[in-house]
Design a protein around this nucleic acid. Sequence first.
DNA 1: AGGTGTGAACGTATTCACAGCG
DNA 2: CGCTGTGAATACGTTCACACCT
Lengths: 238, 238
Amino acid sequence: MRNGAIPDIVIRRLPIYVRTLRRLAAAGIDSVSSEELATHLGVTAAQIRRDLSFFGRFGKQGKGYDVRHLIEEITRILHLDRTWDVALVGFGRLGQAIAHYRGFEEDGFRIAAIFDHNPDHIGQVVNGVVVLPDYQIESVVRESGIKIGIIAVPADAAQQAADQLIAGGVRAILNYAPVILRLPPGIWMREIDPTSALQSLTYYLEPAPIPDSVLSPGSFTTSWPGSNGGRTPGSFRA
Amino acid sequence: MRNGAIPDIVIRRLPIYVRTLRRLAAAGIDSVSSEELATHLGVTAAQIRRDLSFFGRFGKQGKGYDVRHLIEEITRILHLDRTWDVALVGFGRLGQAIAHYRGFEEDGFRIAAIFDHNPDHIGQVVNGVVVLPDYQIESVVRESGIKIGIIAVPADAAQQAADQLIAGGVRAILNYAPVILRLPPGIWMREIDPTSALQSLTYYLEPAPIPDSVLSPGSFTTSWPGSNGGRTPGSFRA
DNA sequence: AGGTGTGAACGTATTCACAGCG
DNA sequence: CGCTGTGAATACGTTCACACCT
């Protein structure tokens, strides 16, 4: 069991561990070794053992980890043993898609407030939540004790949305806008940026379209080596 | 100018550099020092200089970088000086949101083929593109020479979607499904995973809702220190 | 002077390899 | 014996600091 600050990169892997462990549990598996779990995750066994060792000693020597127990532990570490209210700013196409997405709810996040600038959107109702004008962000967020915000507004409105959320007491932000947000210390943020993901992937593609000649689909579709075979970054690094 | 393989993490930063440089260009700025650019980006000047040095010597001593020229160079490095056709698999709520998203188009990506399993979706038309049955993925992707795929299907269908895309010649995948894809060597992938982003953010929040007493909003909303002040990970690390 | 490009130093993350426990 | 937990070794990424160029 380590002490001191835990690296953020370790924290970011924990949700994936939980997700995988849940699938194992659902498949009726109640014990895994770090080696088995590593295979499912596409990482090394040493990494899993080291990551978990930051928080405690959850394994049994010679046996492995109890799946259900490990799920509970990580769930507790991440504070996922409760439902979190979230404020969504932006109810354009993207915001509406997010508001209707059932996945968040299943994983313990509830969109408890929605804000937009456009009068046409204000007053609409999603899952019992009314879209409010954006000038109410600070007060509503503070009064409802919301600590998590999702930003789904155009780039030029994102910084202001962040400022208002933070003024209302939000301390964690999921940002879908393609801008770099300036955040005060103590505020945590993750970015969702599909466009730059695509724009970095093209680096690895041939500049010109290949004149569909020698396209050998053999050897490919079959099974294949462990995690990180031929220099494609594994699931996590990406 | 370095040689050999360039770290993927450097590649992933380049699109953000371009985005920021474009904003500067639009603001009529035609020259920046690494220091100025670093301020805009929330990273260190040394990192920018080092990153760029992997590809060439684009700066002028005592002057900085020519904005327009640097945009061109990075655009060329990333192969963004053309339009890329993309295959979208999945036309449920998420897939439809992606299909309608104008942002990709603006940045040089064209959704040129759409596939789904659900007969109700097949035959629908978006921007002149017909939704095709998923068993046609491999052949259509191969015949149209598409190298980039977007996966927006449920978790349990994602691996098969990936396999079919790859069988058709796709070499880069943007995966929205919450599963770890097994990919053969030579295939590149990025994940879009809002749920686990949220689930890792909650680690940093108090487990119990704070009884809204001392919520000092002072000192906050104002301006603040350089990039990475008080231990919130900067824009990039996140 | 002003700012790049880069060796060297540093810090962080991953992997090795094994002592020790059940 | 099998597998964890962890020091030690290694690999990787970032930052420092300065020679050098314009």
